[in-house]
Design a protein around this nucleic acid. Structure first.
Length: 592
RNA sequence: UGGCGGAUAGUUCAAUUGGCAGAACGCCUGACUUUGGAUCAGGAGGUUCCAGGUUCGAGCCCUGGUCCGCCAGCCA
């Protein structure tokens, strides 16, 4: 039973539920399809879907696609995939979608014309294909939005402005200095209607005119100084094609999209706080017949050692600093998924950090702990040697081998056991041997004893070196009575090593990922690329126990004493490729 | 020298709404162990941003201040 999250937004929702203010709680997750979703979005997804889940509501997935020159279908598809992955098995029953191609219905509420586009009921089951369903698109409301804009013009609350972009800026004033009214502010309704129609018709070039709300050029809130509602863009749109030559701005489209979908709680990040008066102004100015949505703001998630800015992430992709949006070093949801992090771990982290209005940087250790904790419970234990050194058991017969029983997951008896082959010739981890170790080194040393996991206690008799002095082989003798169940099995030896039998070993490409940045706040110095970690990826060939030949992409593995791994999508039936998701905690590394 | 928002342990958050300031993560110590993991036990760590006020009693209420964030895109 997981603890129920509680925060100031949920308190508000709970209050609304208690007083029966809405027939159903309805949130939305509204990304712009101009990049891939990242860990910051994961928090927003968990918040919005979490509220829908806890209060019996629905959360619409909506593309906030009002700027055609930045948006692409590739991003739409990745967003749908990432959201479904993150909420799968948790809140997928709360995912609000609509029929493919559906547009708002024209309805009559108390004699007033109204537009409504509810999600399909019941919510979609988590099937592999969305079938005849799709996410919502703000661009599906362009017709309705346009009608609302015309209504504002007719009410004398919006006007066509001929100021150039530069002049618009100049007229706006500054935070501590009021703006000046546009010379075009007091055009007649007829002229405004005519000009707006011609803007829509594509008669004027980009930037020639805008439709602006008529509010207050002296407002201390800059977003109330006659904000632009529509701009001319002679650009095709990924979803509406070449139908439109004018496109609505975020502020105009967002509140009305919320309204059209019947959203009750419109939850966004802190930087939109100053936009809330405009959000309310637009809705209140239109004389709408249904309850209005309300906007609530929270502080976004910024984990240390990560960058969460779409613009900067796109830079890493375009400049090939990483291999793509789903590079396992990326803080994107697709990168995190490919790295091997289970959705449950990401969710636990995103929910666990809480929801406040305080700008903060979350210690990446909290994220890493959530991953280890989740993986500890589900990962299958395997023996694999990353940086091998040869070891010979001199009193173990050449050619002999035996199958030793190994536990798959000590945390989960249901996971069962497997057989691991043992022989005279083994690989052990190079760093598990030191010729003259410092104190507290519990591993193999000349003359010292260690246990080989699931096998024998061995003693190192001889260190074989090549002419350059590098250790190339360790010659050891085993206490052949010390196997599990044997007479000396319970002898206490300080260290236990993992190992792989040389003749049975399977090669695997292993990609050792580390943090992408070396600084806790990569962008603090103003240039995040100066803080790139040159060792964020190392590719090696590891020696694995043979059962790993059957590794599955859907399962998680712990190479004992080392780290958690997941099969990469580059793996093929004949070629194993593992991504290191995260290392185990290593207290020896700290002692050293 | 505008408006809006914020400030509690190293970090992220709680504190039954005025009643002995807690948790998680991190850190340290110990126990256990066929993973130096996991688990278990313990510990350190606080001027609740500051100053004043109200009150038997203030993290919470009042006044004044400090510091931080956001806002001057025809981006979202």
């Amino acid at each position: 039973m997981e603890p129920q999250p509680s925060d100031f937004i949920r308190d508000i929702v709970a209050k609304h539920v208690a007083e029966n203010r809405y027939s159903q709680i309805h949130t939305r997750f509204p990304p712009e399809p101009n990049g891939y979703l990242h860990i910051g979005h994961a928090k927003s997804i968990c918040l919005n879907f979490g509220i829908a889940r806890e209060f019996g509501g629905v959360c619409n997935l909506r593309m906030d696609d009002t700027n055609p020159i930045k948006e692409e279908v590739e991003y739409v598809e990745s967003i749908v995939e990432d959201v479904r992955w993150l909420i799968g098995g948790w809140a997928d029953g709360r995912l609000g979608l609509k029929a493919r191609g559906a547009a708002p219905e024209n309805i009559d509420v108390d004699g007033k014309e109204d537009f409504l586009l509810p999600p399909v009921e019941p919510a979609v089951p988590p099937t592999a294909s969305l079938g005849n369903l799709e996410p919502f698109y703000a661009s599906d409301y362009f017709d309705q939005l346009h009608q609302y804009a015309v209504r504002l013009v007719k009410k004398g609350l919006a006007y066509v402005c001929d100021l150039s972009p530069e002049d618009t800026d100049a007229y706006r004033g500054a935070p501590d200095r009021p703006g000046r009214q546009s010379p075009w502010r007091n055009r007649s309704v007829e002229e405004n209607l005519d000009l707006f129609a011609r803007m829509r018709g594509g008669e004027f070039p980009d930037g020639a005119r805008t439709l602006r709300a008529k509010i207050d050029m002296a407002s201390p809130n800059i977003w109330l100084r006659d904000p632009v509602l529509y701009r001319i863009r002679h650009a095709d749109h990924h979803h509406t094609g070449n139908k439109w030559r004018v496109y609505p701005m975020y502020d105009f489209a967002h509140c009305l999209s919320d309204y059209i979908e019947g959203i009750t709680h419109s939850i966004c990040t802190l930087e939109f706080e100053v936009h809330r008066p405009l959000y309310d102004w637009i809705l209140e100015s239109l004389d709408l017949p249904r309850p209005l949505p309300r906007q609530y703001e929270f502080a976004k998630l910024i984990p240390s050692y990560m960058i969460v800015s779409k613009r900067k992430l796109i830079e890493l992709v375009n400049e090939k600093v990483v291999t793509g949006w789903d590079d396992p070093r990326m803080p994107t949801i697709s990168g995190i998924r490919r790295r091997g992090v289970p959705a449950g771990a990401l969710r636990r982290f995103a929910i666990g950090v809480g929801v406040t209005k305080y700008n903060s940087v979350t210690d990446i250790a909290v994220y890493e702990h959530a991953i280890r904790d989740e993986l500890n419970g589900i990962a299958l234990r395997r023996l694999a040697v990353l940086r091998p050194i040869k070891l010979v058991i001199t009193n173990y017969p050449e050619g002999k081998s035996e199958e030793l029983e190994a536990i798959n997951n000590p945390e989960d008896p249901q996971a069962g056991a497997r057989k691991v082959p043992f022989s005279r010739h083994l690989f052990i981890e190079r760093e598990d041997f030191m010729e003259s170790p410092p104190p507290k080194f519990f591993r193999l040393r000349p003359g010292g004893e260690v246990r080989l996991k699931y096998a024998y206690i061995i003693r190192c008799d001889e260190v074989v070196k090549d002419p350059s002095g590098e250790v190339v082989e360790l010659r050891c003798t085993a206490d052949l009575d010390s196997k599990t169940g044997g007479p000396t099995a319970n002898r206490k030896v300080k260290g236990t090593l993992h190992w792989v039998s040389v003749p049975h070993a399977v090669d695997a490409e292993v990609r050792l990922y580390d943090r992408l940045f070396t600084a806790a706040e990569p962008d603090a110095c103003g240039d995040f690329k100066k803080n790139l970690n040159p060792h964020s990826l190392e590719i090696i060939t590891a020696k694995c126990e043979p059962s790993l030949k059957e590794a599955q992409a859907g399962l998680r593995y712990q190479f004992e004493r080392l780290a958690y791994f997941a099969l990469d999508r580059d793996a093929t039936p004949g070629r194993l490729v593992f991504n290191r998701t995260i290392t185990l905690k290593d207290t020896w590394a700290k002692i050293r």
